[in-house]
Design a protein around this nucleic acid. Structure first.
Lengths: 223, 223
DNA sequence: AATCTGAATGAATGATCGTACATTTAATGA
DNA sequence: TCATTAAATGTACGATCATTCATTCAGATT
């Protein structure tokens, strides 16, 4: 990830001419904003270009077709999401409880979990059912994520005395996170990220009360 | 609801001329199928008309504009959903556990929970973030449903010794249902309605193990 | 039967939008 | 300084599609 997305840096104006990668990233960010603002079906290349402050011909120059731009945007979001949770997991401790805590927190990382990004995800989700390419890239099909979560749940279940199907538990936990995102988008009187995270932890605590309460993993400093 | 949706009744052909209500319903059903098959953004009036075996001019005759057709379709789905859960609730017993059981089962009623309908819901959801009209009609904003579910959870929590926030619990349960629907749509190797319902009950059992297991409410005949 | 009403058709229209491309502009290197 | 290369622009074209409307047609009314 060439992270050069700092063109609005105060002081000197953005360069008229930019490297291929930087311009692509700028256009992708503009696409996310446009989808969030106007919806997928009403997003036009002119809109995207206007958001980026560029001419609409440039979009085709960098992405050949509109479909190309949209696909690349979804790939960008998927990769970003993946980077986010893998990094969080690496930084976490060895115990499954700490790892689940880290994973859930990473899902509400303010860098990832912005209004525009959630809206865009939501829009792609809506289109995914009839587009195999989108379907593969949408969250529920991130095999690594699912396997990791199932593995953590398996280890957590083993630490409790009670029986429980780790696959179903992992599914409920994943789904709860996705659902809380949807709420933040579609509910008219939505709650904020703090309440969202508490809801996710409420779910984790229901399955693993020995390890969690609605603030996160037990036995940690609280803010 | 004038329920005249039986035009494909074998034997005599469908009447060339139909009452206003019946034709509208037929076109709405065709819209649901079209959205499911081609996605929201690629749905055209010609597609819809072709699905219904009618001319595309007729759509405007009955619904003035394309937006009108789509809005009416969403209203139709919302009303259908509402009818479904309220009927299920009325038929249920008085105890909160039986009522939650009935509510969850109604969400997977095969009449409501078809592939086409789930796809259509999903598509509207994706567009809802930037359309207040859609936003109001989408599931998470059904105040009656939310209040009912919260009320049931409050009574269930009262029956257990443990503490617990009924609002958050109700939210997790609602979200799990929605999430399972999404899975059935967007996952490449999706599971069926049976496993979906079990997942929903797994969630209910996590909060109310005295009342539920992953097959539903306890103390009932099983199939 | 004749008339009337409103449903249904499909060709014509006009607007929107993606794509192509000729032209302009900026940076790089000789 | 000039030449070369790549980025960026904006006009023009063509396709798609929602909408309109004159016309046709079926059923009801008299």
């Amino acid at each position: 990830m060439d992270d050069i997305g700092d063109m609005a840096k105060a002081g000197q104006a953005a360069p008229r001419k930019l490297s291929r990668g930087a311009r692509r990233q700028q256009l992708i960010e503009a696409t996310i904003e446009t989808i969030a603002a106007r919806g997928y079906s009403r997003t036009t290349l002119t809109d995207v270009a206007r958001h980026a402050g560029l001419s609409h011909g440039l979009v085709n120059f960098h992405f050949q077709t509109k479909e190309g731009l949209l696909t690349e945007t979804l790939k960008y979001l998927a990769e970003e999401y993946r980077q986010n949770w893998t990094a969080a997991l690496e930084a976490a401790g060895a115990s499954p409880a700490e790892q689940l805590d880290a994973l859930l927190r990473s899902d509400f990382n303010p860098a990832i979990c912005t209004n525009a990004r959630l809206s865009a995800w939501c829009a792609f989700w809506g289109e995914a059912q009839c587009r195999p390419m989108y379907q593969d890239l949408c969250g529920s099909n991130d095999d690594d994520y699912n396997r990791t979560l199932e593995d953590i749940c398996t280890r957590l279940v083993a630490e409790t005395a009670r029986p429980g199907d780790p696959v179903r538990i992992a599914r409920v936990i994943r789904i709860t996170t996705e659902g809380v995102w949807l709420d933040m988008m579609t509910m008219t009187d939505a709650y904020g990220p703090a309440e969202a995270m508490r809801t996710a932890f409420t779910c984790a605590a229901a399955f693993f009360p020995e390890h969690f309460d609605d603030r996160g993993v037990l036995g940690r400093k609280r803010l």
